[in-house]
Amino acid sequence: MSPKSESPSTLAKSVDATILAVRQETPNVKTLTFDLSLDPKAGQYLMAWIRGLDEIPMGFSGPREITVHEVGQATKALANFEPGRSLGLRGPLGNSFILRGDNILLIGGGVGIAPLTFLGEAAKAQDIDVTSLIGFRSSADVLFKQRLEKLGDLAITTDDGSMGIHGFASAGLKELNLGEYSQIYLCGPEPMMWDILSRSKEHSGKIQVSINRYFKCAVGVCGSCCLDHEGIRVCVEGPVIMADRLLNSEFGKYRRGPSGSRGSCRG
């Protein structure tokens, strides 16, 4: 194949992995640890093949683990895997977060905290200062509090005020001076990310955003994940995209479903 490739190597074949441990993080989020490492960088993802059912994209929450939020058939099946059970993994795929500077800020919500925690731990190992701002619906949903506390300052927001600052993650922005950070990393539900981005446009040149689109092939040919208006193939050119490229895109406005038709970016 040509060395002049615009895409990172995506010729990852499915490998068989066995689940070593399953950890319940919140009532509907579990972390699955594998018996092998695909040697991922934080921000990359894999395609998890639940045999006989479906193959879905999952970010890494550590070198050999994924953290699954049960939202539908495939994620429920995955969350019900017991230790000892095997599945097919294709990865690591996509680009990754890139560490820049020595004082970073992680902003996330929901299961989007997973890749950010992996990134924060990698950063800490390189003596980079890590601050985190994480938002959840309620105290019961708070994810990776302990892992993030170990890294540095941590601010939590909850929609219902049951823990930390009352309000959306953006409510926590007031406590921070974004200008201080060498780089900002963002991952979470799209409305939350859009809310943050639209309040911090002047920093968009240093915000790396991990986004979610409907992935099918994950090798950059089928067109399912393409992002308007540039036609970015999120599965191979993403999932991490600089915020300034997102500001005039479909991001925050709409997203396509499995048929390719446009729908809401909520949910």
């Binding site: 074949k13 193959e55 099918k216 089928c222 499995p258 048929s259």
Partner: peptide, 10 residues
């Protein structure tokens, strides 16, 4: 919506 995954085998 198309077929369930995997939809490709590289």
């Amino acid at each position: 919506d198309g077929h369930p995954g995997p939809t490709v085998v590289p």
